[in-house]
Design a protein around this nucleic acid. Sequence first.
DNA 1: CAAGGGAGTGAATGAAGATTCATTCACTCT
DNA 2: AGAGTGAATGAATCTTCATTCACTCCCTTG
Lengths: 222, 222
Amino acid sequence: MQTSEARIDAAEAARTALVDSRRRQLLNAAARLLGRAGSQSVSMQNVADEAGVSVGLIYRYFGNKQELVQAVIEDVLHEFSVRVAEPVQDEADPVRRIAAAFAGYCSVVQELRDAAVLAYQESKTLEPEGRETVKDLEVESAEPLMAATREAIHAGLLRDVNPRLFAYDLLTTAHLWALKRWYFSRFMTHGEYVAQHTALSLSSVLRPEHRADYADLLGPLA
Amino acid sequence: MQTSEARIDAAEAARTALVDSRRRQLLNAAARLLGRAGSQSVSMQNVADEAGVSVGLIYRYFGNKQELVQAVIEDVLHEFSVRVAEPVQDEADPVRRIAAAFAGYCSVVQELRDAAVLAYQESKTLEPEGRETVKDLEVESAEPLMAATREAIHAGLLRDVNPRLFAYDLLTTAHLWALKRWYFSRFMTHGEYVAQHTALSLSSVLRPEHRADYADLLGPLA
DNA sequence: CAAGGGAGTGAATGAAGATTCATTCACTCT
DNA sequence: AGAGTGAATGAATCTTCATTCACTCCCTTG
């Protein structure tokens, strides 16, 4: 037998679960469409159709179109943060941690495709406040990479470069596949793209005396 | 005394000049506005006001809004092609030619500011056909850099990397300042950005035996 | 089983803004 | 000077959505 409080809690939990799954359903539908066309040519009706619900329902979960777009972008950036933290855990060597983080970013990009770079395309359509949030989240998503870079430099494995510069370069290089896939895919696969950029980036900063230790990452540049 | 034909030619030339200057005036006004806000929030009325003409007039020079946006983007890409060809002429050494081309791209970016990367933000709002044109122009603008890279590799100055990859990376690195200025400018000037990226990029591919020859470009990474 | 409440619907509303076009204006040629 | 030409104007038109809300449906509770 349930107490009335337990019943209320259960109902509460069910509602929350429903709300979450609907939000997710709408975010995914919107992300799919926004990956193909700019937010300006994606109507709320389109999103509703894609999600298989009515227009009105969207407004139950998001205040307005702008909020929806903002939520989609934040969702993507959150995915980056989460999905990169994990592979990085396993690596003790900071240089390999850099490579793992980069590979992590790249795999999220590969999976989300065009949605991965919505921030580049839609940021001007956001409210200034929302834009700031997006920037903060992006910087935050570069954090694991930046930490590993600092460490690698401190350990004397890398030359003395600005870790903020180096880490952000790598992050944006991961994005670049989504932005310029139409070009790079003419002559390389995503896997090759990741490998060659790992090699190029490390090659530019690895101290000569440690190159041999990372020959596997450097490939032909070893 | 003029022949009637000469008179007609003169009139023709005057008309052409007028058309050109109006087009330019409108393109500049539109580029200014598009640099600040997405095309979706820039109305034809806004463009007209910014240019100091009436809405109707815009339609005399551009078929519709989309064509105007497309023309602005093509104009920017044309600027890249033109402005980079020149500084590159002067350098005999292919490695220095790479650096000069990169500096050229960067200086166009610095000058055009946000308008430089309109292609990233607006490409999804363009007609598929227009999008193709934009891609072609972008690839074309990387040509000088690609040629110099090929030569440098052929001359044995650089390691054997894919010139298409390397050159496009550099081109997009130039764009990156416009895309992420809000971040990089927290800790470096545009000049430092250019210098450090020149150094990083060359450092990754310069063969060890030639590093000394380019110590000035490599800076602290020499 | 009836009432209550929230989820979901989709037609109606209103605003924004792209595009048109009748009209004015300035200039050139005869 | 008078006619003709094309540039320029901007109010009116026409569409396209974002947003609202009166309504239906279903589930839970008493």
